[in-house]
Amino acid sequence: MFDWSQQRLLVIAPHPDDETLGCGGLMHKAKAAGAQVYVQFLTVGDTADVSDKGFSTASERVAEVKAVADYFRWDDWHIAYPGDEFHLRLDALPRFELANTIEHASPLSIAAVKPTVVLAPHRTSYNQDHQAAAEAVLTALRPSDAGRRHHPGLVLAYEEAADQWRDQAVCAPNALVELTGADVDAKLAGMRLYGSQVHDHPHTRSELTLRSLAVLRGMQGGVAFAEGYHAMRWLT
């Protein structure tokens, strides 16, 4: 069994809420075991939502992040590219710049945090920011001399319910992390703190969708609940 208590996790999230949707259960599980958890957001800006006014400002979304960070007890978090200039436009940034930020330019870069586990979005997402982030993480974690650059032993791509919306087949997750009922409840509670982003069912960010996906992945592993991941590197 993997010992989460000894790990230092770095979660790369294109936008606030992606980290909770993709690995909220694992973050809760790891912190409860004694791990360190750091979250590197890439961008946030004014966002259309289901509120009465129809959008949330960047400052309102940052306030949500603060509440979620306190709830999950993150060790630290940071937003690399705040503002509408970058929000939903990460694909316009040169790959070199985005990868460089993730690799060593950010205060929560791979070089600064030296994580043992990196969690990032999967490249099959339809969202252009997720695709750009996933490709940049692959570049930042490219194989090289581990004596010269930090090499996390475990690199996982997390999934979100809408990632399957593609014009080509998407492989099922090849790594499952077992969750307790408390881990799933914590994931849902964390998502509720993103009040501007959570939706009623049917929606990819509804509580029923998130719980159902946890049940499905759990069934595939022979347990009650799980989160699915694609293992990009697993060095034992």
Rank of each mutant, 00 (worst) to 15 (best):
Arg217Ser: 13
Leu93Phe: 06
Tyr126Leu: 15
Pro143Ile: 14
Val223Ile: 09
Gln40Lys: 02
Pro14Gly: 13
Thr204Val: 15
Val117Arg: 01
Gln131Asp: 06
Glu85His: 07
Tyr38Met: 04
Gly228Asn: 11
Tyr194Val: 01
Arg123Glu: 12
Asn174Arg: 13
Arg95Phe: 03
Arg61Gln: 01
Pro152Arg: 04
Leu42Cys: 08
Arg148Cys: 10
Asn127Pro: 12
Val113Leu: 04
Val65Leu: 08
Asp49Cys: 09
Pro94Lys: 08
Val215Lys: 15
Glu207Cys: 04
His28Gly: 00
Leu188Glu: 01
Ala182Asp: 12
Trp4Gly: 00
His151Ala: 15
Ala226Tyr: 11
Gly190Cys: 00
Val155Leu: 04
His122Leu: 14
Ala80Arg: 04
Glu97Leu: 09
Thr124Leu: 08
Ala69Gly: 06
Asp52Ala: 07
Trp77Asp: 09
Thr101Tyr: 03
Ala175Leu: 08
Asp75Ser: 06
Ser59Met: 01
Ala214Tyr: 10
Val11His: 07
Ser59Val: 05
Ile102His: 09
Val184Gly: 05
Ala63Ile: 03
Ser206Tyr: 06
Arg233Trp: 05
Gly54Glu: 01
Val65Ile: 15
Leu98Pro: 07
Arg89His: 13
Leu156Val: 09
Met191Ala: 00
Arg89Asp: 13
Pro107Thr: 05
Cys23Pro: 02
Asp3Pro: 06
Leu108Cys: 06
Pro14Val: 12
Leu188Lys: 02
Trp77Gln: 09
Glu207Tyr: 04
Asp84Ala: 05
Ala214Met: 15
Arg142Phe: 14
Gln36Cys: 00
Pro202Ala: 03
Asp46Ala: 00
Cys171Glu: 15
Pro143Trp: 14
Arg149Gly: 10
Asp70Met: 01
Ala58Gly: 00
Asp163Ile: 03
Glu64Ser: 08
Glu227Leu: 14
Val215Arg: 13
Ala162Val: 10
Glu160Ala: 15
Ser106Thr: 01
Ile110Val: 15
His203Ile: 02
Leu216Glu: 14
Lys114Tyr: 11
Gly147Ala: 14
Leu188Val: 00
Arg89Pro: 06
Arg95Trp: 04
Ala105His: 03
Ser109Gln: 04
Arg205His: 12
